[in-house]
Amino acid sequence: MLHDSYLDPDGFRLNLNALVPNLRNVTWLLQKQKAVIPDFATWYPEFQEACKKSEIMGWVVKSRNRITKESDLELLSSCQVIWTRNWLQRVEGTATFPPRMSTSEIVHALRHSKTPPVGLITVRRKWVDKALPSWELLAATAEAYSWIGQILWRAHKAFGVDRCDLADRSVECVTSALRSTLTRLPCMDLAQSELQAHFTMSGGVVKEEVEAFDPDPAKLEAAGERYGELKFPTSGPIENVPGFMAMARTMMEKDGHHATIAFLYNGERGVATRGLQFDDQNAKMLAFERLADLVESTRADGIVIISESWLAAPTERERQLKTIFFPARDRLDRAEGLTVYAATRDGRQVELLSMIERGPNGEASCGEPVEVTLPAGANTFTPIRRKWDDMEKRGI
């Protein structure tokens, strides 16, 4: 698939060179069958006239001729590089690299530049054809796909049917149903965050681990049997913190651990729930950056995080310098806590903390929750607040 090879220059070029002629071949096949398609001479010329006015369909026709008769499309690639040193230090820049330069080669070049050797590198590529400079190529081919889908719908309608005889495809949103309008399939509406890769400064790949929660009735019934009656809070994010803490304590004492879970809100309406997984600080920063992207796409204006956390008081030297040398997870004197914290776009924030004591067999006991005046979750909200500020500037 074109999307799957986006970060691989050779693979992307190969898939694009296969896709564009195939898009054009659909119209050729229709024309070859015109004798058996009802009223073809009436409605097909109307489609041709509409295509002549379409920048995208004009590009498909010309590109097919270039690929089959001349050479590859002349692709250009821009590259946005984001360096995240820590929660508070994040630098963005745009660089131009040779189109055939692989993402790993780009990262290698960045690592040997003036970039400090710590933190996380995010590389976002953008492919365009020199003959269509105003369109990103995934968006352009998705638009072309919608045109082809529309003409296939019209051809089927001529026979009095509205579905294709072919079975549904492996991609969930590509079905045998046909569309009468120029509408892109949902799986082709991609966020920029899906066209990027993440690396440590040592060159290791960091994977995004953000999982959607499926409200499966069977799973909910099983949870009720295990934890008893859990009262899910139904107000706004700030007001829901005590209720979520009560749920989290019940689950923590039953299971001995608690996953990191994010609840996104628009007003008092929940719009998304995600589970976050991370093995180190880089993966954690990446998970919350990805969560910030979801905040924008869902237009969320509030968020609640439930998390099991390591806690430690700063040393006297750290207090003097107002910096942290050793994160709590690396400290010998660390303590364990269960936190529920919330923030809203209008600036409100609250956190409850329940300290965890472990029994001889590792069983967990949660203390009474206390409100934290300096929320431990403040850093993890930094990408969210940055996203809200950016949305405000853009009037979203």
Rank of each mutant, 00 (worst) to 15 (best):
M201E: 03
N361E: 10
D39Q: 14
A155W: 01
A313R: 11
K207R: 13
I121Q: 00
T84C: 12
R100I: 08
V271W: 00
F278D: 06
E239Q: 14
D214F: 10
S71D: 15
D279I: 01
T181P: 01
L23P: 07
W43E: 02
P98N: 01
A35Q: 07
G224T: 02
T115V: 13
L321P: 05
P21H: 11
E363M: 01
V171A: 03
G58V: 09
G204C: 06
L291V: 08
P217D: 08
T183S: 12
V174K: 06
M245P: 08
R24T: 00
V20Q: 04
L286G: 06
T181K: 13
G270Y: 00
I121A: 00
F159D: 06
E92Q: 15
S365K: 14
P237V: 09
W83P: 12
G58N: 15
T175K: 08
S63E: 11
T344E: 11
I121S: 03
S170G: 07
Y145T: 13
R24E: 11
C51D: 12
K387R: 14
E351K: 04
S365T: 13
P38N: 01
T94D: 12
R345P: 06
V350E: 09
A376H: 12
F12M: 05
E194L: 08
A50N: 13
D333C: 09
S102C: 07
V60S: 03
T175Y: 00
P99C: 00
D129T: 03
